[in-house]
Design a binder for these strands. Sequence first.
DNA 1: ACGGAACCGTACCGTACGGTACATAAGTTT
DNA 2: AAACTTATGTACCGTACGGTACGGTTCCGT
Lengths: 207, 207
Amino acid sequence: MEPFTPRQNAVLECALQLLVAGGERALTTAGLARAANCSKESLYKWFGDRDGLLAAMITYQASKVRTPGPRESMPTLDDFTRSLVVFAEDLLGVLSGEVSLALNRLAIGQADRDGARLGALLREHGRLPIEQRARALLELGRRHGYLQFSDTREAYETLYGLIVHDGHVRMLLGEPPAGLAEERSQRARLAISQFFRLYGHGAQDIE
Amino acid sequence: MEPFTPRQNAVLECALQLLVAGGERALTTAGLARAANCSKESLYKWFGDRDGLLAAMITYQASKVRTPGPRESMPTLDDFTRSLVVFAEDLLGVLSGEVSLALNRLAIGQADRDGARLGALLREHGRLPIEQRARALLELGRRHGYLQFSDTREAYETLYGLIVHDGHVRMLLGEPPAGLAEERSQRARLAISQFFRLYGHGAQDIE
DNA sequence: ACGGAACCGTACCGTACGGTACATAAGTTT
DNA sequence: AAACTTATGTACCGTACGGTACGGTTCCGT
């Protein structure tokens, strides 16, 4: 929806910083007011209540990421494969980002309140754009004859599983991403290679 | 390692019930004492403090699940395939269980405290047994020539990704498991089928 | 220059929760 | 039976936090 004022954006950025640094318990209205040099009254005027603030943080963070529109005309199989690898690397990068992890932890921790409103918000603003970008990419590949599948959703979820495994939950549980960030590129290439063996036209290997 | 007394088990069971019903905020020391007909002082005597109680809940829950030891001698490929499908169904069943979801939400919500002590506990008591069961199964399959892979960990993580996709995080975020529980069996079979196409006999090992 | 809106800083209130203390009862040991 | 252990229930304390109120200040439009 309509974005926030620059001042509010700065406050939200500060709130994200607090959340990343100290988790949810460090994100108090008084603490945020102190850190952002604003008054608690302004916080309640702008965001309604604490839940409104949390929701605003999610939409603000979502507004920062730009989803690269799929440029059409991707003639060669090599280009298409590279695009998938880039998607995989981007996905791993996003999921292991500090802010993403903190917001996911926040929403998961509140999944029992308000019918998981924050969770729904996170799915809508965080996961859905990624999913749609990937699905467009997959269908482009199918249109060019590089892939073959009947159910786009099934193909996408398989791709997601091959890329992420259970790394997301492990990171959410606090496991240090040792080796995860390191071998990210290699892991992305392996996942795409496996994906082609399941949904590709031929058994194209990567490099 | 030593278990708790029956009385303490009953209290922990009651605590899990509270957690499942109302999330972390519903699990207060006073509320648990009232629900379990015990005194707060006993809670602190038995579990030290609130974090000790949470940790005890995890270990207690872990003590309830029995991991079926892999019975050896699995001659036919069909038996082995069926075992993998059963594992996949079990995994999906465990991950979508109410208590499992509640405990994972709890540990994820506390991932920023004490160096993610609860998260480590959950990985050790919850995920590791499952992983070792699966890895033993995979290596058994390799020993019989049904599978071929060089890195057991890589094979296991691929299997996990093919089975679970991002369903775990989605459920943690509060997405209703509509269609998840329904098509669980079908999904398990598809995942195992895909896994065989990647790691089954005759499939080429990738780098 | 004037008036009003927005905002800051702070003080304040109510409450909820973690943790402790204590009085009492029930069972166990000697 | 007396002493001890263990547990219950209740009352209490300190604190931290969400939310509100208010006086003072800055800024903008007219």
